[in-house]
Simulated scan of single mutants.
Amino acid sequence: MKSAFPKLLSAALLCVSLFAPSAHAVDLHVMNSGGFTAAYKLLAPKYEAKSGDTLNIAYGPSMGNSPEAIPNRLARNEPADVVIMVGYALDKLIAEGKVIPGSRVELADSRIGMVVRAGEPKPDIGSVEAFRKTLLEAKSVAYSDSASGVYIQNELFEKMGIEAQMKPKATMIPKIPVASVVAKGDYQLGFQQVSELLPVPGVEFVGKIPESLQSVTRFAAGIPVSAAHPREAKRFLDFLASPEAAPDVASTGLDPLAGK
């Protein structure tokens, strides 16, 4: 009968490599998806000042066919010590053996909001009936190609019983922020995760869609199996999920999970 000692030793060495303190600052490569971008931009310089590490960022969606999408970046063997993305997309990478099991850290929940062009009246979306009326009266509607937009296209309109009416005037916007095309006047209403709407100039934030119709997106982070600096990556993830980071996360329209 084979001894279990070699396996136990390997597991112990992995724990040491992840959690032992580092004597030197390193360059960490981070891949980050859209919904957490505003929070990342606030937190990254604070962590660099605190740790001495340098964060090298690559942005891309959590899923999809674009070359920038995080799964496609990893498939091309782009360097990555940390990935920050939609939780279920991260779970898929873990199941595929591309992210270390057990490295997942919960960060924040994100809700869907709506914008109109700056200077335009803000429609009523305070109740399900008011929201339905606003959608039916809109001339054009835009939504993202990420998790929130997939939900709107495949579930929300059908759930509200207006799928047929919305199909001719609702458009999925790939790669770029939805609010940017609303700001130019190309679309009357724009939907995306709140944290992706708020930073865009030229629009007015109307509010979150009614809670009973929400699709809450969980953002999480993990460490790819190819990470050059897994120990330092773990420290960065602990910082992102900490009570210290929570106020900055909340200020971007996300609901932080620290302390919950």
Rank of each mutant, 00 (worst) to 15 (best):
V105S: 15
G126C: 12
V105T: 15
K133R: 09
S144H: 06
V83H: 06
G60E: 14
Y151K: 04
A95K: 15
G52V: 09
V105R: 15
K122H: 07
T134P: 05
A108G: 03
A75R: 12
V82C: 13
I125F: 01
V82D: 07
K159Y: 05
E120Q: 15
K98N: 13
I100D: 00
A142G: 14
E78G: 13
I125Y: 03
A147C: 04
A69V: 09
K98E: 12
L74V: 04
L107I: 00
L156H: 08
S140R: 02
D53M: 00
A95E: 15
S144I: 01
G113V: 01
S110Q: 06
K92V: 05
Y143F: 15
I57S: 13
K98D: 12
T134V: 08
L156V: 07
V141R: 06
N72S: 03
N72L: 02
E158Y: 14
L93T: 04
G64F: 03
N65L: 11
A142K: 04
T54Q: 11
E68T: 05
V150T: 15
A147V: 09
L93D: 10
E96M: 09
A58K: 14
E120G: 01
A75M: 10
T134W: 02
A164R: 10
D109F: 06
K159W: 06
T134I: 06
Y59W: 12
N154R: 14
G87W: 00
R73P: 07
I152K: 01
I94C: 09
E129V: 11
L135A: 15
P101V: 00
R73D: 03
F131N: 05
F157L: 09
K139C: 11
L90P: 08
S146N: 12
P67M: 06
G113S: 03
V115S: 10
N77M: 12
L156T: 08
S146I: 13
S66T: 15
V83N: 03
S62F: 00
V82R: 05
E163K: 12
G87K: 03
G126W: 11
V150W: 12
I70S: 09
G87Q: 07
I84V: 13
R104T: 13
I162G: 02
I152W: 05
T134L: 04
V83K: 02
Y88M: 13
N65E: 05
L74P: 08
S66R: 12
I84P: 01
K133E: 06
N65K: 03
S140M: 06
N72A: 00
F131L: 09
S148K: 01
E158M: 11
S127Q: 06
V128H: 00
S110E: 05
A138M: 03
E106P: 08
L93I: 08
L55V: 09
D109V: 01
I162T: 02
A142L: 12
V83I: 06
L55Q: 07
V86D: 05
G102C: 10
A164M: 00
L90C: 06
L90S: 03
K98H: 13
G52R: 00
M85L: 11
A95S: 14
G52W: 04
Y88C: 12
